[in-house]
Nucleic acid binder design. Sequence first.
RNA 1: GGGCCUUUAGCUCAGCUGGUUAGAGCAUCCCUCUGAUAAGGGGAAGGUCUGUGGUUCAAGUCCACAAAGGCCCA
Length: 1200
Amino acid sequence: MFQPVPANPSFPVLEREILAFWKDTDAFETLRRLRAGGPTWSFMDGPITANNPMGVHHAWGRTYKDLFQRFHAMRGFDLRWQNGFDCQGLWVEVNVEKDLGFKTKKDIEAYGLAPFVVLCKQRVLNFAAVQTEQSIRLGMWMDWNDPAVLRYLRDQLGQDPGATLTLHGPRGQVTGTVEQLVGQLGLPQLGGSYFTFSDKNNYDIWKFLKTCHEQGWVYKGTDVMPWCWRCGTGISQHEIVTEGYIDRADPGLTVRFPLLDRPGESLLVWTTTPWTLTSNVAAAVGPELTYVKVKQGDEVLYLSKGTLKMLRGQFEVLGELSGQALEGWRYAGPFDELPANQHAGGWSEPGLRRLFARIPESAVQAHRVVLWDAVGEAEGTGIVHIAPGCGAEDFQLHKQYDLPVVAPLDENGVYIEGFGWLTGQPVSEVTDRIVADLQAKGRFYRLEPYTHRYPQCWRCATPLVFRLVDEWYVGMDGLRKPLMRLTEQIRWIPEFGQDRELDWLRNMHDWMISKKRYWGLALPIWECAQCGHFDVLGSREELQARAVAGWDVFAGHTPHRPYIDAVKVRCSACGGTAERIKDVGNPWLDAGIVSFSTLRYGDEPDYWRKWFPADFITESFPGQFRNWFYSLLTMAAALEDQPAARTVLGFATLLAEDGRPMHKSWGNAIEFNEAADNIGADVMRWMYASQKYDADMLFGYHGADETRRRFLLPLWNVYSFFVTYARLDGWTPARSAAGRRTELDRWILARLEQLIAQVTAALNDYHVYKAAQPVEAFLDDLSNWYVRRSRRRFWKSEADADKQAAYATLYEVLVTLTKLLAPFVPFITEHLYQNLVRAVAPGAPVSVHHGEWPAVNADLVDEAVLADMDAARTVVTLGHAVRAAGNLKVRQPLGRVVVVAPPEKHARLTHHQALILDELNVKALEFAENEAELVTYKLMPDNRALGPRFGAQFPKVRAALAAADPAAAVAALRSSGKLALTVDGQSVEVAAGDVLITPQPKAGFAVRAEGEYVVALDTAVTPELRAEGLAREFVRRVQDLRKTAGFEISDRIVTHYVASEGLAEAVGAFAGYIRDETLTVDLRPGFLPAGAATAEDAFDGETLKLAIARAEAPAGPEPAAKRRTPAKKAIAQPGAKRQPTSKKPASKPASKRKAARQKAAPKKTAAQRQPASKKPVSKPAPKKAAKPKARPAARSRKTR
RNA sequence: GGGCCUUUAGCUCAGCUGGUUAGAGCAUCCCUCUGAUAAGGGGAAGGUCUGUGGUUCAAGUCCACAAAGGCCCA
């Protein structure tokens, strides 16, 4: 027997129960066992950064991940189920620093690298635990670590990383220090999620880098890049674009560069970064620009013609010349007196100077005008000051013109030696003194604040400087072509993903893999201080073999700083001692290697071959083309020359409901836990599932509520309806005779087959929303048509074949739908499955997620059944429209509905005659005998058929058709199957199939048309029909009063009434019907007893006073067999009284609704009835029942 | 500056290879049904499909250009 179903479930509460059920039954592990050995479907999880709680934007992608894993598991595939955590890099460091209140790198070094790295690991373990719990809450089935174990390791690591522990893994006990065990998380011996800080992950990157080095791709390069002097690190272009430009007022300083060969003449140069003037080497002009020679006072100045307006005061233009003409002019620099500017090759920190040693000139000697296409006139003077040590583009010009490089700043933004009075000064504090110095030297021209967008550090908001640094790179030219070839072998969804990736690959520069920080991959590069040669080591074993010192310090530790730094090796070139470079790795190395490291590459070749490449990966598009997708592809290309994945699904960005990014400070952010608690995981998952991939998603509570109301609630209502009546009838699938299926049954089953085919095809094609759309359409058909049209079949007393068929059909639909929806909404489907299947078939699989995907059999879709129902529904819709237009309420029965339809469609409708009559509340269905009375025809060509046939002549054919006499044309087409038209004086013939005949209703409000159908209602209300209508009105009011007075569904009542004449007659004539519908055992005219619930009303020119009271209760509960006699739908059974629905008294909302109706009533029916007045009164006032808190002001039911 | 995506009703979005009168949900208004009930159903209103040009018998759909917004690169 099915368990009772609450009418108004809390989905979040239900989901927690299901989570407990899965845990208690070990449901996930059971699924793994069931599918072990099946064909493989390989999903590779893109690692989530374990640095903060996960957000609702993560839940989007994670829903896809879970959905496709569940779908494939149901289809019988064996899966790996491994989640991944991204663990290393600056993101984690930043948060640890924040926790500690650190400001700069010096704070970290003072604190100590070893404890700092421990804190980073602890943070990762902590948020891995948090994200694990959140993911479980979302319904993700993965091979999760126990969060408690992760927290235990976190705490043990903090106490003593060297303490020895034993954990139990899939292959038995694993013993080691805490640090060693943490380094083995996710590996086969410990299982669970992979962590990119694992030893295996790090050493596999070593192997990759060594492979690259063997190809000659690894090199040390020097560049000028954005730098935060507080953090002491370079900031990549990517980091800048995500967080950080601000509008900022900088000094706009204009200075003179006196020309050496033209006494009294100067270039005018403008800059917003005065500190870079100390390192000026050249001045750039645009070769295509026009420059002017200007006399102002005693001096002659040069600037571009387009920037003349920046001059103040009087001046005289002496002449014009092209930028080309200025090339090579030599000038005196602003700080030529500094030693740094007098050094051949330029000046920089000692370690970098050798790079420019081949350049013979000093900055002073090099000062000259160079040509540069990028010079513009939007700001400044059209003459750009070039300091190759202080700007990225300037540095490119150094390469182009072999200019010296003067790089003034150390990593903390302080002037290095060689800069005279500036040495030792922080860059942030020198502007005023530089300006003063230039004034003293006569170089100063003007200073005006200038507001512009300037990059800042995303972590500390310090304005960035540009600084010369050396970093390590992997040259990508050798991989560019192979990567593009492999990219084309991958299926990208949406398709434009491939173009994006190819575009990136065409444009990508060499991959900068180093970062001067502490927590991350220890780059396996050992550099010899003596000869500058470097080696890249490919494994821990190689390192041990080549170590000459420090191995004892490192042994037993994970390959992280600081311990790895202690190991020194023999230089393979000069035999000297090489040390590891101090840099850590780019975190995308960590994420890119996972299709090797997690698949036991090198350790278990068979396993790797079994699971590589991934069948499927999915991540949010923004960023991933040059991040994870890129690094994943690159690693696979370098190591195996294979694509790392067969299908890549990318999706857009999640925004708040207001269309803006979610921001805590804007108040539009929703945290995952909050969302899960408020709206539940299933609702969220369905929102994600319905979303198109390539459009940004607006996520918020309004959409969530709509999703709940549109999808989850109707699903629940159908289920609840089924269970309620199946319990009352004691129906179970085991006992079911097949019954005799009706047209309606066959229709919904045909729709179900259609749905299975659609959903299966869409998911096989990785198109989630194309699966979700037909599901919603089906649910609408099921809830608002099948169930609505079938209700009486479940209510009725007889347990006949028709009722059996109804139960069997609805049951089959519900169970199949449950399976189809299981990957989408795993919680509610599990609940449904437990009650619908397990409660009556204990031998069935324990979980819906252990079951098999419904078989696709598109052949079972019965097109005729579907078309019949379509026709019937069209007619019903039109009939409703006719009633609405004519203000003919459905409660008033009418004599007949008259339909105009093509003769061959008549059978479709007679098939569904009973349905149409009932739905429209009419007595007869007729087909128009003389259509011409009701309709005219509009003739339209079938464009697809006739367009190509007639080509340019087509418009004339169309016109001829429109001009033809419709009635005659239709007659001709119907009798002979063809029609002759005259076009351009020639006769052409069209066939019946080439012409679409659209009937058009003739004037008159009681007719509606759509497509091939026209529906008319006979609006004559005979006295008999009127009486029946009044009887229905009477019933309606009794039912209302029953609810208002708080009666149970099953209560028998005595009904007293006082009615005007017409109504009284109708009540008499339809007494039997009234008693049945209202469970009235005694229908008494006249006397209104005290103590009863009463109401009065006026309608249709009649008046009514009602009083009802409970009939004397029978001695005991009625036997089930007996309850059926009186009522069609209300059912007395002890169990029924415990249904929350039936227990509900006429509550506040009901009376509000009534108030709303009372208010509306006079408006709509003023012509027919007097203003309604009905006062629900509850005499015995059972419970808080009919406390008529009816607020007259209530405007509509929606106001609640 | 280059590449890609988006632009359809007040809002959020569907519209397959060009083809009949461009659809849905929400919101609004009107009506209705009622023991799925803090639900349900029907109807109305709401569109120069961002603009301009082109191809075509036929363009929301294809092409070109432009505009706005977004993503990426430089």
